[in-house]
Write a protein that binds this DNA or RNA. Sequence first.
DNA 1: GGGCAGCGTTGACAGGTATCAATGACCTTT
DNA 2: AAAGGTCATTGATACCTGTCAACGCTGCCC
Lengths: 257, 257
Amino acid sequence: MTKKTHKGVRLALSGSMAFSQLRPETRDALNAMCHSKSYRAGQTVIHAQEKCDFIGCVQSGIFRIQRTLADGREHIVGLLVEGDTFGRAFDGAAEFSIEAATDAEICAFPRAEFEALLTRSPDLERAVMLAITNELDRAREWLIILSNQKIAGRIAGFLLLMCSRFRDIDHILQPGPQGIEVKIPISRADLAHLLGTRPESISRSLHALNDQRVIDILEPNRILIRDTKALARVADEDEIEALATLQDLLKNHRPAH
Amino acid sequence: MTKKTHKGVRLALSGSMAFSQLRPETRDALNAMCHSKSYRAGQTVIHAQEKCDFIGCVQSGIFRIQRTLADGREHIVGLLVEGDTFGRAFDGAAEFSIEAATDAEICAFPRAEFEALLTRSPDLERAVMLAITNELDRAREWLIILSNQKIAGRIAGFLLLMCSRFRDIDHILQPGPQGIEVKIPISRADLAHLLGTRPESISRSLHALNDQRVIDILEPNRILIRDTKALARVADEDEIEALATLQDLLKNHRPAH
DNA sequence: GGGCAGCGTTGACAGGTATCAATGACCTTT
DNA sequence: AAAGGTCATTGATACCTGTCAACGCTGCCC
């Protein structure tokens, strides 16, 4: 299942926001302790309520953060993409499971070693603290999006959040002449779980936005965002900053001539 | 508005989960740097998008973590009670506002001093890291609760979360012979914002639970939880209820011979 | 005391969504 | 090529919730 490669794998820290500003010594120490692990779509990385002996950093692919409810259904509370970190420093028991949504890779830092390095490296301490704080704010962003009563509004919020968060990940986001193409990395059912609704409603609202020419459904999971302003209006929230990022992207990739 | 008292106020760290395990030296250092601040209900502690020069720890009262949307409405993404900490270490700009929901007190640690202490005190580092990680998990709990399609389910989840989280805070939770009495510290409108709905729906669902003898509305803000299991059933899913109706139907239409 | 504002509650109604059921597209398997 | 499965979609219907409106209650101020 899990393929462990030898130690000392070269760490792709360049794409990792959290660890991009570390001193060379700290980075070397991290590289020295890390294991690389591969997962196939559907495999579980961490089980909820079980102790986990490592801190992870996503290298490639998409992971779902989720909880299995009493009735067996699963609720997704977040996604992890490359550069994101997960795991609880100084505390073993995870509250949520982490599953690979696609084939994916992580690098894992053994808990004890990581915590020791954390304690003696102020730069790593700062980086991890910032990463968790940002993750917290992202979780609260989700709360705002989920609080939207209409499904179309949640979808709009989701698409805008994808754009603002994954703007540097080219296999998810691709600016084009007619708009930004978003590749949704999860199924309709997962998206429904993420947005607190059902696949049927996702489909309906998505096609409603399609008919309004706000978006264009190229394929089920390839969405072209045609009218960002309209989308922001549907989301009805102060995602104005996200809108700004979008227009930035468009400007850079559609030089006037 | 904000009443600053002299430095060196004795810190009520005993009630604070986050700081309860600190070494005496670290605790003294915190005590030495802290200011006490008082707020009246409705006052703003931190404005979203503004730099905040301190890290805070709630001493008494309730605070709302919220964001003001473009259309003027405010959405609450969490509550803070005594012992909870807030503020972004190593990072100035807050993403959400913090407002006093009741008259309340905090103690504030100047950012620079706090960060310096954080860097040289592994025990404080550990405590803060744990606090943020827990806060993150709590935010994700909220996501689970909010993803419930029916309002009654969200209210049930909210009440259960209150019970598990405020177990030791006796002016909010009071166990009695007939059940647990919960004092809801916020208005119906705030509760509606918190659960992503409207005050009218809150009222209706609450009274529906009242009529089902699951809870007892002593006063608008004083709820007696009579049947915890039933409440958990409502929170966990309506699918169980649906399943029950289904089995009822089956029983009626296919009587055991 | 009377008037007033804020809050919680209740009613009526329209609209949105969950649910059940069925279809078609795509992929894998045989 | 045929068969089976998964997934996305669409349709019909019942239910829930948002919305607008009105009412009673409390506390406050004049």
